[in-house]
């Protein structure tokens, strides 16, 4: 296929004419370095506490549910109550991340929590969120050994533990945080509400192939950046 590669690139260069010199490429190289942002919607132009409120408001319009708790210690009770309320089994398949493992799950002995990827037989998956974007109520999930991607999509119910201090205004702030955290992970999943489809007569149905429910447990850690 190297023939194909050469020929495609040659066609592109020919179409452009003479502008293939180093100075011309420097313009593009510089753009990659600068990572300039476009217009950021004014709606995210507000303080940290107001951004948290905006995130919650937006997530709710996307048919997600949000539970605000004061600290990680309050998460087991909040999750147990949510599962009971929704008539779901008290069994969680959770991401093996330090943040999730550090939650005092033993405070709720009735909750069974196992850690690892999903094989498709788990009713409820629980993951952390790398960040969240207030602009559209969107969660930003980062794959890795501590966050298997299958947990985001296979279980019927996806519970996400999000720290308020990880809520940013626009997507671009999320990218900045991700770059600061290291190399691009295999998958970055932006999740806005539960799975949905309108493929049958344009009527919106939740739970097409991914989760039917998206529940966000928001820890108000007050650790505003």
């Amino acid at each position: 296929m190297s023939d194909a590669r050469d020929q495609i690139l040659a066609t592109i260069r020919r179409a452009r004419g003479g502008n293939g010199d180093a100075a011309f490429h420097a313009v593009a190289e510089q753009r990659l370095q600068l990572k300039a942002r476009g217009t950021i919607p004014k709606r995210v132009d507000r303080g940290p506490a107001a951004l948290v409120d905006l995130f919650v408001e937006q997530a709710l319009t996307l048919s997600a549910t949000v539970d605000r708790v004061a600290s990680p210690d309050a998460v087991p009770a909040a999750v147990a109550e949510y599962l009971a309320r929704e008539n779901l089994p008290a069994t969680l398949r959770a991401a093996p991340s330090p943040e999730i493992e550090a939650i005092p799950w033993r405070d709720r002995p009735a909750l069974t929590v196992t850690f690892g990827r999903s094989d498709g037989h788990d009713e409820v998956g629980l993951t952390p969120a790398f960040a969240a974007v207030a602009e559209t109520g969107t969660l930003m999930l980062r794959s890795g050994p501590d966050h298997p991607t299958t947990l985001n999509f296979l279980p019927d119910t996806h519970v996400v533990v999000l720290r308020a201090s990880r809520i940013v205004g626009p997507y671009e702030e999320g990218w900045a945080m991700l770059r600061a955290a290291g190399a691009m992970p295999r998958a970055v999943n932006f999740v806005s509400g539960p799975s949905r489809t309108a493929d049958i007569e344009q009527t919106i149905q939740l739970g097409a192939h991914g989760p039917r429910r998206l529940h966000i447990v928001l820890i108000e850690d007050g650790d505003a950046r």
Partner: peptide, 12 residues
């Protein structure tokens, strides 16, 4: 929609 339910960036 303001944003689709799933926007996924895959790298390798």
């Amino acid at each position: 929609q303001e944003f689709s339910a799933y926007t996924t960036f895959s790298t390798g």
